[in-house]
């Protein structure tokens, strides 16, 4: 009995120290990049140019959809813009831009200056709709497949690696 208790105590301590050791090698900062594989809810969101609403269900018509959240006041959005322009060229991917908490005039100027990569342009003036997409800071991008399942999430500006990754996912590489 005593021996059993002794070994249980020892094992518990070994276990805890093992866990500590493993966690040393892990990144402790949190982002939502790992939240993939879920189906996107049906969300109504207003179009950028008129009063009409677009439902996310309609993205079913595309083989792949990349929803990109951006604003003219956001510096990193400017940095990732060339990559979005490149992605525009791909055939099976539709780019959806959600203009986030922005002034319409500024947003328009932004697209005029740098080009408009978006096939569908939407807006979220209050930022409330973006909560439904699980967005917490822009730029963020979500890659959907035909079944509207989230297959990739990108928090922060898209970089060259992400570009390659997206091409790979949509089978254009």
């Amino acid at each position: 009995m005593q021996k059993l208790i002794k070994s249980i105590i020892t094992i518990i301590f070994i276990f805890i120290i093992m866990i500590f050791y493993i966690s040393l090698g892990k990144d402790n900062s949190y982002d939502t990049v790992n939240l993939v594989g879920k189906k996107l809810d049906s969300i109504e969101i207003q179009s950028f140019n008129n009063e009409k609403f677009v439902n996310t269900k309609s993205f079913k018509d595309n083989s792949f959809t990349l929803i990109n959240f951006w604003a003219s006041w956001c510096g990193p959005c400017r940095a990732e813009h060339p990559i979005l322009m490149n992605l525009k060229e791909s055939k099976s991917l539709i780019l959806v831009g959600v203009n986030f908490k922005d002034k319409k005039k500024n947003a328009k100027n932004f697209l005029e200056d740098l080009g408009n990569p978006y096939g569908i342009l939407l807006k979220d003036e209050s930022g409330k709709k973006s909560i439904n997409f699980g967005i917490y800071g822009i730029p963020e991008s979500i890659l959907l497949n035909k079944e509207l399942v989230i297959i990739e999430k990108f928090v922060g500006p898209l970089v060259e690696e992400d570009y390659e990754k997206i091409l790979e996912e949509i089978g254009e590489k």
Partner: peptide, 12 residues
């Protein structure tokens, strides 16, 4: 305090 470390290591 330790539980989040454990879930992170054991279940990611």
């Amino acid at each position: 305090t330790l539980y989040p470390i454990f879930t992170d290591v054991l279940t990611n």
